[in-house]
Simulated scan of single mutants.
Amino acid sequence: MITHCVFIRYRADANDATRDDIYKALHGLRPRIPGLTGIVIAANSSPEGLDKGFSEGFIVTFRDAKARDQYLADPEHAKVGAMIVAAAEGGIDGIFVYDLDH
């Protein structure tokens, strides 16, 4: 299983409608990708204060690396990615991504 984690440091002017559009588009990828088993989207709720400004994020789970790779290559994923980059503080610098293979 692959757990794909994405955390976003949004620009101050990225309003709720912008965020909702991103998350709706993200959910729209689920039926396109066989092996995409779940999507969780939430704001940071950690009391530790170590978020470094990454206020929200999402986790996408995949059955295997093949499904994750199909997601990464999907043209609709590229559109969602562009929406995220446009809304993030500093563009790509406002996004933190890592995958766990377990």
Rank of each mutant, 00 (worst) to 15 (best):
M1Y: 12
V6T: 07
F7L: 14
F7I: 04
F7S: 05
I8P: 01
I8N: 02
I8K: 01
I8G: 01
R9H: 15
Y10W: 15
A12H: 06
A12G: 02
D13A: 11
D13W: 13
D16Y: 09
A17F: 03
T18L: 12
R19I: 15
R19N: 03
D20Y: 04
D20P: 04
D20W: 08
I22F: 03
I22G: 06
I22N: 03
Y23H: 10
Y23R: 11
Y23G: 05
K24C: 08
K24Y: 11
L26P: 05
H27R: 14
H27W: 11
R30E: 07
R30V: 07
P31V: 04
P31E: 06
P31T: 07
I33E: 00
G35D: 01
L36D: 02
G38Y: 00
V40P: 00
I41W: 07
I41P: 00
A42V: 06
S45C: 09
S46W: 02
S46T: 00
L50K: 15
L50H: 14
D51L: 09
G53V: 04
S55R: 04
E56V: 09
F58D: 07
V60C: 12
V60E: 10
V60R: 11
F62A: 08
F62K: 07
A65N: 08
K66I: 15
K66L: 15
K66M: 09
K66A: 15
A67N: 03
R68L: 15
D69N: 14
D69Y: 12
Q70Y: 08
Q70K: 06
L72P: 08
L72E: 09
P75G: 03
H77V: 12
H77R: 10
A78R: 11
A78S: 14
K79L: 12
V80R: 04
V80I: 14
I84N: 04
V85I: 15
A86N: 03
A88N: 06
E89G: 01
G91D: 09
I92W: 03
F96P: 00
F96K: 11
D99E: 11
D99S: 10
D99R: 05
D99C: 10
L100N: 01
L100A: 02
D101T: 12
H102C: 12
